[in-house]
């Protein structure tokens, strides 16, 4: 009798799994991916709408723009700006891993922009370990990236696959309702990006760099909206508090706007739209110093946690 029950149960489970797989396969859209359920990290986290998060976070703090600006100013590459990888093995939570993943994604952008393919491998390996730690390692094509990094002529492909991998990780986390980790990756990338900008501004206080730092007030405001939505989680709240300290310093920065009508030019079949609206950042030396201090303090503290 027991054997029969086991047999029937096994048969039903197998049929059930088969039907489920067929159903999932026929209902997935092209950009959806399967992933291991990850309930643990969502404990105590409010379930905010995917679309609402998306509307806030698309392309927040891309490390590419900042790295390009720094490079165009003729500032030489400095490895000291990059986050140390030595603390990675001691991260005890998925939050710490996700945050560090963001930090190292910004560092990778900086390395790639300067074509430092030789130094990239160490960072790629660290990123892969962190991505595995939060179960998204399958989106980070380490083997291909490592191969591309071994030849400096592949830097364009390296840039593309690096950024695309991070986009896929971000997309997957949000689709699987692990947006809290996605938010921390974004926060880490943003903090590292502004940290590097501040370090460069110390040796080259170019107005463009100072403006870049000041305008982060706008981006941080969006980022805080995103982070605050997960603040019910006590561990996550620590990150929110840290970023709130930074925001308090940015609140002092003033941004004004000028209106203007855009101009459209078509040249060689390419349309270019020149925006005539303008945002103008007003930042004092004292504000800049206070922002620099709090950013350095927070960044150095969070990468060790």
């Amino acid at each position: 009798m027991t054997k029969r029950i086991i047999f029937i149960a096994s048969a039903l489970i197998l049929i059930g799994v088969s039907i489920y797989v067929i159903y999932i396969n026929s209902h997935l859209k092209p950009h959806e991916n399967l992933d291991v359920p990850y309930e643990e990290v969502n404990k105590g986290v409010i379930d905010i709408e995917v679309e609402a998060v998306k509307s806030i976070t698309e392309n927040i703090s891309s490390p590419i723009e900042i790295a390009a600006l720094i490079k165009e100013m003729g500032v030489p590459f400095n490895r000291d700006y990059l986050a140390p990888t030595e603390y990675v093995s001691s991260y005890s939570t998925n939050y710490a891993q996700a945050f560090a993943l963001g930090v190292f994604s910004a560092d990778l952008g900086y390395l790639n922009m300067y074509n430092k393919t030789g130094s990239v491998i160490d960072y790629l390996s660290t990123i892969k370990n962190l991505a595995d730690g939060i179960n998204v390692g399958q989106y980070f094509d380490f083997a291909t990236l490592k191969r591309l990094a071994s030849n400096s002529s592949n830097v364009d492909s390296l840039k593309y696959i690096s950024v695309h991998s991070f986009n896929q990780i971000d997309q997957n986390l949000r689709q699987r309702k692990r947006g809290n980790l996605s938010a921390l990756i974004i926060a880490g990338a943003w903090l590292e990006g502004i940290y590097i900008t501040i370090q460069v501004s110390k040796i080259k206080p170019d107005p463009k760099l100072l403006e870049k730092i000041g305008e982060q007030k706008i981006i941080l405001s969006d980022l805080m909206t995103l982070l605050a939505s997960y603040a019910k989680d006590p561990i996550f709240k620590n990150y929110v508090n840290e970023f709130n300290n930074i925001k308090a310093k940015f609140d002092e920065v003033k941004i004004t706007y000028e209106q203007g009508e855009p101009v459209t030019v078509v040249e060689n079949g390419m349309m270019t739209v020149v925006q005539k609206d303008k945002s103008i950042v007003h930042i004092t030396t004292q504000q800049l110093n206070e922002i620099s201090q709090i950013v350095e303090l927070t960044r150095n503290k969070l990468i060790k946690q």
């Binding site: 981006i219 969006d222 270019t272 739209v273 020149v274 925006q275 609206d277």
Partner: peptide, 14 residues
């Protein structure tokens, strides 16, 4: 129709 366009941004924001 165009397949691409360039946008020269002068105002940081969404």
């Amino acid at each position: 129709t165009f397949q691409s366009f360039n946008f020269q941004c002068q105002k940081t924001g969404a």
